[in-house]
């Protein structure tokens, strides 16, 4: 990991002092104009959240609680109306989203690996080229694409077009792309919710394998309590509008975890209860 390593003065009131904050949302406010009613809706008001180095935080909540907006804010795809978002001690977006500076193109800002709900591959390029483009764009050697695809079990499909792959394989390719860029922050936006149960389960296990092989910092947005309990170190339940942290659970289970583990199930039940 890059960045400062003697950061003790600033930071959130740490419940565990050894943890360094990586992504900090500080008093973030975000409003939307509803497309249907034309009224202003406040999604976030003075919302704060900290993701620590090497931690995978899952954000769980019903639809419309601003989970995806939260992820977009962290990814820099949207800018907060007020408050600050800092990644790795560098300001990513502040209250005044200017046309320059705020959006860190040209390799400025931390490297992100994002898995969306849909694979979002370029259909006119082979799977390998898709990964290679992400690698060259972040200034990495495109030769790493083969290994990244092998890691997700797509070595023999590398030269196919995404359209001939199954949905699960396409999402594997998206996961490969996200991890190939050696991301400082992994953002997962309902990554497996468009897949059938069995495929989603396999991909969760794959994600866990990738994570245990090389722990990273991540933010997972999901509506699936089992997914959150199985994958995350900490689960945050969002509720209401503007969104508030309704409950928070630490999942102190060693990896690798088994999806059938009764402790995972216990946590799932807790999260479900908090979701109401």
């Amino acid at each position: 990991m890059t960045g400062t390593d003697t950061d003790t003065t600033s930071g959130a009131p740490a419940e565990r002092p050894r943890q360094r904050p990586y992504a900090v949302l500080d008093g973030v406010g975000k409003e939307f104009t509803s497309a249907r009613t034309g009224e202003r809706e406040t999604v976030f008001d003075d919302f704060s959240l900290t993701v620590h180095h090497g931690e995978l935080v899952a954000v769980v909540g019903a639809s419309g609680t601003g989970k995806t907006t939260l992820l977009h804010l962290v990814a820099g795809l949207e800018h907060p109306d007020s408050g600050r978002i800092t990644l790795n001690d560098g300001t990513l977006a502040d209250g005044s989203p200017g046309p320059t500076g705020a959006n860190g193109t040209d390799g400025a800002g931390p490297r992100l690996g994002v898995v969306f709900q849909q694979p979002r591959l370029l259909d006119w390029l082979s799977v390998r080229r898709n990964v290679e483009l992400a690698l060259t764009s972040t200034g990495l050697d495109p030769a790493g694409a083969s290994q990244a695809l092998a890691d997700v079990g797509l070595a023999q499909y590398a030269d196919r077009y995404p359209s001939v792959l199954s949905g699960g394989q396409r999402q594997r390719a998206a996961v490969a792309r996200a991890f190939a860029v050696q991301p400082e922050l992994v953002l997962l936006d309902e990554p497996f919710s468009a897949l059938d149960q069995l495929t989603a389960r396999r991909l969760r296990l794959l994600l866990q394998d990738l994570w245990t092989a090389r722990p990273r910092t991540g933010l997972l947005v999901t509506h699936n309590p089992l997914e959150a309990a199985f994958l995350a170190d900490r689960v945050i339940v969002l509720e209401g509008r503007p969104a508030r942290v309704h409950a928070e659970f630490a999942i102190d289970l060693p990896r690798p975890r088994a999806p059938e583990d009764p402790r995972v199930f216990t946590h799932q039940t807790e999260i479900l209860a908090a979701l109401g």
Binding site: L77, D106, G107, F116, R120, S137, T138, R177, L187
Partner: peptide, 11 residues
């Protein structure tokens, strides 16, 4: 959606 993808991967 592809534009968002291109943005986060710094194309």
């Amino acid at each position: 959606e592809l534009h968002e993808m291109a943005y986060v991967y710094r194309f």
